[in-house]
Design a protein around this nucleic acid. Structure first.
Lengths: 336, 336
DNA sequence: GTTTTCAGTGTAATCGTTTTCAGAATGCCG
DNA sequence: CGGCATTCTGAAAACGATTACACTGAAAAC
C-alpha cells in the first residue's frame, strides 16, 4: 500500500490540510511544520503528482515537439528548454514527430490531454499551415520554423541572411558556380533557399538549387549525380548538417577533395565539422539561446495572453574553416 | 471552460459511465457508441490524463534517466525506448543527470511522484551502489552500466570483450605501445579498462591506462601532454566517442597524422567517425537493440515481478577503418 | 409460464490531493 | 474586561475521470 497524505497526517497528529500546507509552503506554525516534516520522512511519503495536478489544475508541464531528437540542433535546444523548465519547477514532455504531420497531430492531441501549460514546437510546413484551425487551448512558441509571422510567437534564425552570408563568403573566395542543396519538409529550407537565391542574384550569378528529402543518403546520391553531370558546381551551400554529412560522403566516395574539387559550406557548428577534412565552414546557430528564448517567450505569453505575437530573429555566426579556402576558381577567374 | 466527460454525456443523452466505457472500449451497444462518438467529436472532448491516471492507478509512463541526451549513444537509445513505449501506449519521461548523483536522486524522487510504471536507468557508479537502499517501488532496468550483476535487470555491452577486440586488432596491425583512455564516472570505463588490461597482459604488453573526466577537453589536454612525454604511445584505445573527439583534436592540434603518428580506436560508430581523417576504427554498439531490449526486460519484469534478475549482454561489432591501418610499428617490430 | 441468465446501462463511491470556509486561539486596543 | 483583527487549523467540497454495484429488459432454460 502506498502511503498517502492521510497517513502522514495521522502519523503527525494533524489534518491533511496542514500536511498539504507544509508541502506547499503555506502558513503553518513552526511546531506543526517540523512535526509534519518528521512524519513525511518517517513514512517516506511522496505526493502523487497526478492527484495534485488534477486538483490544482496546474500541470506544470510544457510540451516540446521536434522532428527528431537525434538531430543535434534539437538535442541542444531540448537541453536548454529542459534546463529552463526545471529551473521554473516544470516538467517537459518530449516528442519526436519525424517530420510526419500525422504524428504531429497525434502529439498535439496528447498535449491537450496532458493539459500542458504551453508548447514549444518545430512544425512541418503542412501542420504549420493548419495550426490555427486546431483550437489549441495553450500558448505555442514556434522554434526553428517560424513561418510567415503567423499568430504565434516564434524564435528563429535569420535563415535568409545566414544563407546569403555563406554565398558571399564563397564568392569572396573566388567561387562562382555555387550550388544550393535544401531540405524539402521545413520552412527553414525554403528561407535558406530564398537567401541563397537573393545573394546569387545580387552577385549576378546563376542560381542552381535543389530540394531533397532530409536524409543524408538523399544528399549523397544527389551530389554524386550532380558532380557527374554537365552542371557540375565548384561549391555547394547545404541547408543542414544531415545533408552536409551526405555531401561529404559523396565527395569522398568519388575520391574528390575538399575544397579542391568542391567547396562546402553548411549549417550547424557541430563538434565533428571541425574534424572533417580541412574543417567545414558552417553557420553556427545559437542553439542554447534559441531554447532559452523560446521558454522566455512562453512565460511572457503566459503572463500576458493578450499581447500581440512576437517573432525573435537571432542571427548565426559564420565559422570559416578549410572547406571554403579559395580556390582554383580564383585562378580560373583571373585568366580572362 | 474546458469540456469534461459530463458535458459529453449530456450532449449524447447518456450517463458518464457509458462515455467512459466508449473511450475505454468497454461493452456498449453500437447505437449508443456512435451517439457518444458523435458527441465527443461535436464537443471536442479530450480526456484529462491526470484524472484518468489518478483514478485508474495506472500512469502508463516509463521513466528514462540518462547522463546526457547529447551523447549520441543515449540519443539513439532514447529513440528506441520511446518507440517501444508509444507502441505499448505508454509515455516516456526523459531526464538528464549530467553524471551527477544529486540530480539522479532528484529525478528518482520525481519518478516516484509520477508513479511511473518502470524505469530505464544509466546510473553513475555512486548511485548504482546505493540503489537498493532507496526503496524504489517500481522495477528498474539498467542500461549501459550494469554493475556487478546486482539485483536489477540490465542490458549492457560486453565491454571487456569489446576493448580486448580493439587491443587485439591494434596488435595484429603491428602496434605495441598501446595506451588506454577511460572515463572515470561510469562502470563502462572500468569494464573497458579491465578488458584492455587483460588483453594487453595476454599479449605480454605493458598496459598504460589513464582515467579522466568525461569531457572532450580533458582528453585533449591529456593526450597533448601524453604525446609530448617520455611514454609516448603509438596507439590509443579510447573509452567513448566524446573522448575520442578530444583525442582527434589533440592530434590535429599537434600537427600529427593518423595513423602515422598515432593510431586510434574507440567506441560508438557515429556517422562522423567515418568522415574524420582516414576514418576511425570503432566498436559499434547495437544502440537500437539496447533500447528495445531494455523495454522488453521491463515489460517481462512487470509481468513476473518475482523472477530473478537477468542481465543481457550484447556484443559490439568492430568497424575497421583507416585510423588503425598498420604501421611504422610493424616495420619497427621487424628490426630486432 | 416461471425462473435464470446476461448484456447494457446508470448511480454513486472513489482515487489523493488542494482549497474554501468556518471555527478556535491569540493578541491588541479602547 | 469586551470587542475585533489576526493567525492557524480542521472538516469537507471539489478536481475529472474509472469502476463496483444495482438495476433493467429481453432472451434462454426449465
Amino acid at each position: 500500500m502506498t502511503v498517502g497524505i492521510k497517513d502522514v497526517a495521522l502519523a503527525a497528529g494533524v489534518s491533511v490540510a496542514t500536511v498539504s500546507r507544509v508541502i506547499g509552503n503555506g502558513p503553518v506554525s513552526e511546531a506543526l511544520r517540523s512535526r509534519v516534516e518528521d512524519a513525511i520522512r518517517a513514512t517516506g511519503y511522496r505526493p502523487n503528482l497526478s492527484a495534485r495536478r488534477l486538483r490544482s489544475q496546474h500541470s506544470q508541464t510544457i510540451g516540446l515537439i521536434v522532428s527528431d531528437i537525434r538531430n543535434p540542433f534539437f538535442t541542444a535546444v531540448s537541453r536548454a528548454v529542459e534546463e529552463a523548465a526545471y529551473h521554473a519547477g516544470m516538467r517537459v514532455i518530449l516528442c519526436n514527430s519525424d517530420e510526419n504531420p500525422e504524428r504531429e497531430l497525434l502529439y498535439l492531441r496528447l498535449m491537450q490531454e496532458e493539459r500542458i501549460t504551453g508548447l514549444i514546437f518545430a512544425p512541418t510546413r503542412t501542420t504549420l499551415d493548419g495550426l490555427d484551425g486546431i483550437g489549441l487551448d495553450f500558448p505555442v512558441v514556434l522554434i526553428d520554423r517560424g513561418g510567415p509571422s503567423g499568430g504565434h510567437d516564434a524564435v528563429v534564425l535569420d535563415n535568409a541572411q545566414a544563407a546569403a552570408t555563406l554565398v558571399d563568403h564563397l564568392h569572396a573566395q573566388g567561387y562562382r558556380r555555387i550550388a544550393g542543396l535544401f531540405g524539402n519538409t521545413s520552412t527553414t529550407g525554403v528561407e535558406r533557399h530564398d537567401g541563397y537565391r537573393a545573394a546569387m542574384a545580387a552577385r549576378g550569378l546563376e542560381a542552381d538549387a535543389r530540394f531533397i528529402p532530409p536524409y543524408a543518403e538523399a544528399a549523397e546520391t544527389e551530389v554524386a549525380r550532380w558532380l557527374g553531370g554537365p552542371d557540375r558546381p565548384d561549391a555547394v551551400v547545404v541547408s543542414n548538417s544531415l545533408l552536409l554529412m551526405g555531401v561529404v560522403k559523396a565527395v569522398r566516395g568519388l575520391g574528390l577533395s575538399i575544397p579542391g574539387d568542391l567547396a562546402l559550406a553548411g549549417f550547424d557548428n557541430e563538434p565533428w565539422t571541425e574534424l572533417v577534412g580541412p574543417g567545414l565552414t558552417v553557420i553556427e546557430q545559437p542553439v542554447h539561446d534559441i531554447g532559452r528564448t523560446a521558454m522566455e517567450l512562453l512565460f511572457e505569453r503566459l503572463d500576458a495572453p493578450a499581447r500581440p505575437a512576437r517573432k525573435v530573429v537571432l542571427s548565426g555566426t559564420c565559422v570559416v574553416r578549410g572547406s571554403t579556402a579559395g580556390s582554383k576558381s580564383l585562378a580560373g577567374a583571373a585568366v580572362p
